[in-house]
Amino acid sequence: MKIKCLVLLIGISITNCLILNPVGLNVDREKGSEAADRIRQAAITADLTNSLILSGGRTAGISILSLIADDIAGIDPAKYYVKSDVDSCVKEIKGLTGFVLGSAIANILSCQNLKKDGYLTGEPLPVL
């Protein structure tokens, strides 16, 4: 009896992610409006940093592309996105790629394929 209960609990915990993630009830998700704000802020920060470094600290400026970084990334504010994907996108924009290539190109390279989360709140069909 104890072994059956243990096996049942292990089975539920393993299939929990397989069931809850596609439905959109997992913990690792972020509202599109929050993801858009984070991507926009990362692009603005990268542009400010780059302009301060290139000007020797005399002037700071941002490009218009950093203000529309969330639109370039294709973020829908009403959807939910996988938080780890958004985190890696923000990291690329603020990191070496954003410094060397600029925030707009880093955004285009790393943020174009963000996964929408769940059947109900994301893509309508699962990827098999």
Rank of each mutant, 00 (worst) to 15 (best):
N26L: 07
P124C: 11
D76L: 07
Y119W: 12
V86M: 01
D47W: 10
S33F: 15
F99G: 09
A106D: 04
V127D: 11
I64M: 06
I72Y: 05
L48D: 06
T15Q: 04
A73M: 04
K115S: 10
K116F: 01
E123Y: 10
L8M: 10
G61E: 09
I14K: 01
L25N: 06
D76F: 02
V127A: 13
S13W: 13
L9G: 11
V82G: 04
I44Q: 07
A73N: 02
F99H: 12
G122Q: 00
C111A: 02
I72R: 04
V90H: 04
I105L: 09
K4F: 15
P126I: 15
E34V: 15
L128S: 15
I68A: 06
A104L: 01
V82C: 06
I64A: 11
I14Y: 09
K91F: 13
S55Y: 10
L109A: 08
I3C: 08
S110L: 00
L8W: 14
G98Q: 01
A106K: 02
Q41C: 05
K94E: 14
S88V: 05
L54H: 06
L9K: 04
T49H: 08
A78R: 08
D87P: 02
A73R: 02
A73K: 04
L120I: 13
V82L: 10
K116A: 05
N21S: 07
I3E: 13
T97F: 10
F99L: 11
S63R: 06
T121G: 00
D76Q: 02
L67V: 15
V23W: 10
V7L: 14
L65T: 11
T45F: 14
V23H: 03
F99M: 10
I75K: 01
D117H: 03
L101I: 09
F99Y: 12
E92K: 02
D28M: 12
V90M: 02
I105V: 15
I44N: 07
D87V: 08
E123P: 00
I44P: 05
S33L: 13
E34Q: 13
L120N: 00
D28E: 13
S110P: 01
I12P: 01
V82Y: 12
N107M: 04
N113L: 11
D47S: 07
L54V: 12
S51K: 00
R58H: 13
P126G: 11
